[in-house]
Computed example of a mutant assay.
Amino acid sequence: MLSARVVSFSPDDPLSGLEVGDAPAPAAPDGWVGVDVRAASLNHHDLWSLRGVGLRAEQLPMVLGTDAAGVTADGREVVVHAVVGGPDGRDVPGDEPRTILSERYPGTFAEQVRVPAWNLVDKPAGLTFAEAACVPTAYLTAYRMLFRSGAAQPGQRVLVQGAGGGVAVAAVQLGAAAGLEIVVTGRDAAKRERALALGAAQAVEPGARVGRVDVVLETVGRATWEHSVRAVRPGGRIVVAGLTSGDPEPASLTKVFFQEISIIGATMGTRDELGQVLAFLARTGVRPLIDSRYPLARAADALARMTSGAHVGKIVLEV
C-alpha cells in the first residue's frame, strides 16, 4: 500500500523525515472499516508531526494525514471525521482520550485508511472527492469557530487574522455566505485581494485599524494578539484555534478583564458538525478553495509547498 509516513523527526528540516513508498496496510480494531482514499488534504499538523510534535519515536513510522474522502468496500462515498475517541467518539473504549488520525492511529496519506465506522459521514453528491477532503479540519474548524464558539450572527463583524491559511480562507467563505461582515488581515497583498474575491468586506495589513468587531478568529498568536484584543468590542469574543507565531507576550489581560472580553478555545468539531458544514457547502454552492493538487507519490512536493507558505487555500493529495 502506497503511503506517506514520518520515519524520523527534524525540527529544522521536517521533510527529511518523510518517506513515501509501499508499506503494509494498517491493522484495525473490531468495528473499524476501511476506506479507499480518493483524496486527502494537507494541514500544518502534518508538518508539526514531521518535527516531532505530538508523536514519540517509538510510534514511528506513522502515516501522516488527518483529512480524507473516499469509498468503502460497499461503494459508499464518505468523508472521514479525523477525531477518534473522546466524548463524541464511538467504536473505541469509553475511556480513550480524544486524538486525531496520524497521532495514535495511521493517517490518511495512504491508499487506504481504517477508522471507526462512527467516523464516516456521507459525502454530498455535489462535492468532488478533492473538495470534500478539504473539509474535516480547516472548514470544520472555521465553522465551529464562527457559529458555535464565536456565536456569530448575520450582520455582525468578524475579524479573521491571516489571509492565506486554510482555516482563514474557510472562515471568509463560510462567514460571507452566512451574511457576516468579514474583515481579514494579511501581509501579502495578493492574498488580501484573494480574500476580497472570496467575499471578505475588507482586507488590510496586520495591525491596521479596522474599527470594533464582534468576534475575532485567532490562529496566528503572538504576532496578531495585541491587535485582536484592541479590535474586539467590549463584551466581544476572541476564538483561538492556533498559535502559528507562538504564545502571546504580553497577554493583555488588563484589557481582557476590564472590557469583559471572552477568550474561547476551539479545536476542529464533532462528527455531527462535520455533517452540518458539508450540508452548508452543498446547499449554498460554496466550495473549498483548492490551491494545488498532487498525486500521493509526490507528497514531498505538496508538503514543500505548504512549508513555503506560498499557498492560498488547501493543498490536496489525490490517489
Rank of each mutant, 00 (worst) to 15 (best):
G179I: 14
G54N: 14
A297D: 15
G236V: 03
A178R: 15
L50Y: 02
V6L: 05
K314A: 05
V33F: 02
S41P: 01
Q161M: 13
A201Q: 14
G175F: 04
A152R: 00
V204P: 04
S8G: 12
A69N: 03
I100L: 14
R104V: 08
A39M: 01
L217S: 08
G162V: 11
T99R: 12
G34L: 04
A300D: 14
L281M: 07
V167R: 06
R51H: 07
V316C: 01
T185Y: 01
E111P: 07
G75K: 04
R293I: 03
L180W: 01
W48P: 00
G54A: 15
L243Q: 12
V213Q: 06
A142N: 06
I238F: 02
L2Q: 14
Q259A: 13
G70F: 01
L60N: 03
G166Q: 07
T270I: 00
G65F: 05
A177D: 04
T141Y: 07
L127Y: 04
R237A: 07
R287A: 13
T254W: 12
L42S: 06
W32V: 06
L198T: 05
W48H: 13
V167I: 11
Q276E: 15
A152Q: 03
P61M: 09
R144T: 12
D247M: 14
P124I: 02
A130H: 00
Q59M: 13
H311V: 09
N119Q: 06
P61F: 05
G313N: 02
R237S: 07
A125R: 14
G94D: 15
A208Q: 11
G235T: 08
G207E: 10
L180A: 09
K123F: 00
S228W: 05
A190K: 04
T99W: 05
F129L: 02
G162Y: 03
A138K: 05
L253H: 05
R76A: 15
V53E: 15
T141I: 10
D272S: 13
D74K: 05
L2T: 12
A195L: 08
G211M: 10
R187E: 04
G54D: 11
P87Y: 03
A223M: 12
P124F: 04
G179C: 13
R298D: 15
K314Q: 10
G265D: 10
L55S: 11
V216P: 02
A178C: 12
L101A: 05
A299Q: 00
G70S: 04
F129V: 03
L243F: 14
R187Q: 11
T267C: 12
A299I: 02
Q173F: 01
L317M: 09
E193P: 00
R157L: 03
C134Y: 00
R283G: 13
